[in-house]
């Protein structure tokens, strides 16, 4: 035993303990530390920052008023005595359940309308192979680039002329202006991935075009349909400017508009009820999202790649 064995680095400790000193081991240790600093810590910070507003929203929704406004006595980062009071106020003293059902009906209606017309349009553009199909494709893509904020004023006058002002049907009819371009573009991508030979075989076997669409193409495009459907639903649930401009009566508003215009009264904000409303309003899309994460990711990236 000589002083040679006095360890002066972690690798040597391991060596003395019976493992051999080798350079890869040292590198692995070094790179693990490096990885923690360059990957895990920034990633953790990102996750914390991205999730914090939701955490803050959630705990505020369950805080009683005396806790919410007193940071000295109660740590603001935690709920000491959780209460359902805010949610009760929302459900029993406001029109919240009504707003939820209206929003749901509008989202389902516009999603159905958009997905149906997008399937037909995408099928025609991608599969019927007519002259000028690409021009229609391009026109639909350009339509996606027109933002609602330059359309809502003329649309409001149009809606008024149609006698649909203050009527949820106006929203079901106008949401497709941004849903149809998105869904069509997404579905064109999906139809492209289905081999054309399948359709040719069906044609030879005497199927009509509509039979082919219904029995061959659509069943194979189900993932695309789900993507388009959940996306359209989320986008219509989130829509704000049309709902704000076209709907006036309290009991016909959608959740995002109603929270901002009906729950904010005067100068005193009901933060508890506001947070509870935002939380409940996010739950439906968050639920759908949790079931279909992969579809969201693939449709989001698919639409950009096309």
């Amino acid at each position: 035993m000589t002083e040679q064995l006095v360890p002066n680095s972690p690798a040597e400790v391991e060596a003395i303990a019976g493992r051999s000193i080798d350079v890869p081991e040292l590198l692995a240790w070094d790179s693990r530390l490096r990885r923690t600093v360059t990957v895990y810590i920034p990633l953790a910070l990102f996750v914390i920052v991205l999730l914090f507003p939701f955490y803050w929203m959630t705990i505020t929704a369950f805080k009683p008023d005396y806790e919410m406004y007193d940071y000295k006595q109660y740590t603001p980062f935690w709920v000491h005595s959780p209460t359902l009071h805010n949610i009760e106020v929302l459900l029993y003293e406001t029109n919240y359940p009504r707003w939820l059902t209206i929003t749901m009906a509008i989202a389902v209606g516009s999603t159905f309308l958009s997905v149906t017309s997008s399937v037909l349009a995408a099928y025609a553009i991608e599969r019927l192979r007519f002259k000028g199909a690409q021009h229609f494709g391009l026109a639909i893509y350009l339509a996606y680039l027109v933002p609602p904020s330059i359309l809502f004023i003329p649309l409001a006058t149009l809606i008024f002329q149609f006698g649909l002002f203050d009527n949820p049907i106006a929203l079901i009819l106008t949401y497709p202006t941004f849903l149809v371009p998105f869904c069509t573009w997404l579905l064109i991508g999906y139809f492209k991935s289905i081999p054309y030979e399948l359709e040719e075989c069906a044609l030879i076997d005497g199927a009509s075009r509509l039979q082919i669409l219904r029995r061959i193409t659509l069943p194979l495009a189900v993932p695309g349909l789900i993507s388009a459907g959940i996306f359209a639903f989320t986008l219509s649930w989130n829509e704000f400017i049309y709902a704000l401009a076209f709907i006036q009566s309290t009991d016909r508003k959608t959740v995002p508009v109603a929270i901002l215009t009906e729950l904010v009264t005067g100068d005193v904000y009901q933060w508890g009820a506001l947070m509870a409303g935002s939380l409940l309003g996010s739950v439906p899309v968050a639920l759908i999202y949790s079931f279909f994460v992969e579809y969201y990711v693939s449709s989001m990236t698919g639409a950009v790649k096309e």
Binding site: L50, F54, M57, G277
Partner: peptide, 16 residues
């Protein structure tokens, strides 16, 4: 979970 801010209605997270 990273995608959540994008999924939740903008107005609702804006209120937060």
């Amino acid at each position: 979970i990273v995608l959540l801010p994008w999924i939740v209605p903008t107005v609702l997270s804006a209120i937060a």
